[in-house]
Simulated scan of single mutants.
Amino acid sequence: MDVQKYEKKTLWVVLLTMATMVVEIAFGLSTKSMALLADGIHMGSHVLAIGLSWLAYVLVRKAQNSRKFNGESGKILSLSGYSSGLILLLFAVVILYEAVRRFIEPADIVYRDAIMVAVIGLVVNIVSAFLLHHDHEHSDHNIRAAYLHVIADALTSLSAILGLLAAMIWDIPFIDTIAAVISSAVIIKWSIGLLKDSGMVLLGMKESHSHDHHPHHH
């Protein structure tokens, strides 16, 4: 596994996500769009989680170069994936909570700006997904976690766009909220899957494929 290559790619995604997060939160506050703010805060969780994935690669690289470390460096990746899954789960719950609260007290939304920034968010996520996509996804829980965060984010951006468009066209503001609820349900399902798989590797119940130390030739 070419740790350094993934380390670089992951860092790029972290920086991309961070920039988008700042923009979305700023616009979310100024346009009072729940969807945008949710997406921005959500991006924050991904900055954290993907940052964690990046750190895991740094640690694996150090571990592989170190004489003292004789554990399975693959376990580091599963641990990072597991922690990342927990962050994902937590944020899905936060979005649910926010959506329900907004459902109870609706607010006016500046639709055009909100949709524009959500589209930017979506594009960034698609670019990130391409950056992170690689062959070892199933055996490497770390990159899978980062990938899921990006896809989850694309999903919230997409649901924000669709929700805002529907709300704008048919003047039904709570579609925004329903979209947020559906997104969080899907994200909860993903994060539980990730926790199950990476947790099994950590407990040694299922062997991970990343403990063969030969570099993979493509």
Score class of each variant (00 low, 15 high):
N142A: 08
S78L: 10
S84W: 06
K75I: 12
M34E: 10
Q4F: 02
G28I: 01
D140C: 08
V93E: 05
G40L: 07
R102D: 06
H42A: 00
P173D: 11
G199M: 11
I87E: 03
I120S: 06
I182A: 15
I175G: 02
L48P: 01
L29W: 07
L162M: 12
A19E: 03
N125E: 03
S128G: 06
I25L: 05
N65T: 10
D153T: 00
A146K: 10
G51C: 10
I192S: 09
A167Q: 03
D108Q: 14
S33H: 02
N142E: 08
L132F: 06
L131W: 04
V100K: 04
L48G: 03
R102C: 05
L96Q: 07
V150H: 12
L77T: 08
S80D: 15
A129V: 07
H134L: 05
G163H: 12
L148N: 07
D176H: 03
V3C: 11
Q4I: 07
G199N: 11
T10V: 08
L15W: 00
I192W: 15
V94K: 05
T177P: 04
I178F: 15
A129K: 02
V14K: 13
I182L: 04
I104Q: 13
I25R: 04
R102V: 00
N65H: 07
